[in-house]
């Protein structure tokens, strides 16, 4: 199966169709990843659209999205597969009851054992296998988008499994053998850089750094989500956000904050942001008290001539 994408521009158009405004960087690397069948490691601050990128791509191509949310302590049984012990146990019980039927007519011990062995194979079969996201992605008949979100939150040990699977595109289940990917998934790994990932994993991936967007890109994003807002207001809003990002505050506002703010201003039916408006909506853009104070101190700069 080949995805019908033939240029970087195709990627941009597809994403835009989902309301995701892409940059050259993003489109080029997504395009390469699809063509080279390599995972993409998306790094960048929170709220710049890393997760959204994978989702939008999946939707635009009408591919199944398989998401693995990483966290500390995530292990193979939650990420790859797990045997369903309870079901297996139940099966043992049934087997116990039926054992006479199974073995009954056998003439000798050898044959009895042989019959039991045949049954045992059923123990470790698909019936009792609980496939988790990574195995599901490998088993998909159609190319899926595999989103391994916030991989930096997982433990280094887990990273090693991941690396193995991503490099070989197969998963070995000791009892069932090796499962080779039917179609190589489009893989996105995202990271907020809580922890440095291993060099080996980075080398395996195409590296995409998504930073806060340029004013032009951010304007486009806001416009596409809130076409009702006046051009003048969008300009003032994007300007303000970019001024705020220049401050030395603890948590810089991200695209999600920009969008939330835009939505709030729309509700308040503001057509020019005044210091009072800023004050009212401050909680959306700044999360800490000290950050809020700093923003208010720089209010003139942030709101431009209007203030």
């Amino acid at each position: 199966m080949e995805l019908n994408i033939n240029s970087v521009e195709d990627v941009t158009a597809l994403l835009e169709g989902q309301g995701y405004i892409s940059s050259t960087d993003i489109s080029t690397i997504v395009y390469l990843a699809i063509k080279m069948k390599r995972p993409i490691l998306v790094e960048g601050p929170a709220g710049v659209g890393k997760t959204e990128l994978a989702k939008s791509l999946a939707h635009s191509l009408n591919l199944e999205l398989i998401q693995l949310q990483c966290y500390e302590g995530l292990d193979e049984t939650k990420a790859i597969y797990e045997w369903e012990y309870a079901k297996q146990l139940l099966y043992t019980q049934i087997l116990k009851e039926k054992i006479n039927e199974v073995v009954g007519s056998a003439d000798n011990l050898d044959e009895s054992i042989q019959r039991l062995m045949n049954l045992e194979d059923a123990f470790f079969s698909d019936h009792f296998l609980l496939a988790r996201p990574l195995l599901r992605a490998i088993r998909c008949d159609k190319i899926p988008v595999l989103l391994i979100d916030e991989v930096d939150k997982s433990d280094p040990e887990f990273e090693a499994y991941l690396l193995e699977i991503l490099s070989t595109n197969e998963i070995t289940i000791p009892e069932l053998g090796t499962q080779k990917a039917k179609e190589i998934p489009v893989v996105f790994l995202t990271s907020n850089n809580v922890r440095d990932l291993s060099d080996a994993l980075k080398r395996r991936c195409l590296n995409l750094y998504v930073d806060f967007p340029s004013p032009e890109l951010e304007t486009k994003i806001v416009e596409s989500k809130f076409p009702e807002l006046s051009q003048k207001l969008v300009k003032q809003l994007v300007n303000a956000i970019h001024e705020i990002r220049k401050l030395e505050i603890k948590k810089l506002p991200s695209i999600s904050e920009t969008l939330d703010w835009a939505s709030a201003l729309l509700t308040l039916q503001v057509d020019e942001i005044t210091p009072e408006d800023l004050k009212k909506t401050l909680g959306i853009i700044a999360k800490y008290k000290t950050d809020m104070d700093q923003v208010m101190e720089a209010v003139d700069k942030i709101l431009g001539d209007v203030a």
């Binding site: 970087v8 690397i29 390469l32 850089n193 060099d199 980075k202 080398r203």
Partner: peptide, 18 residues
């Protein structure tokens, strides 16, 4: 020849640390 795309691609492949 598409300088911006070429640049993005090289960065994606060659830069391992932000």
């Amino acid at each position: 020849v598409r300088r911006d795309q070429f640049y993005s691609a090289m960065e994606a492949c060659l830069v391992q640390n932000i």
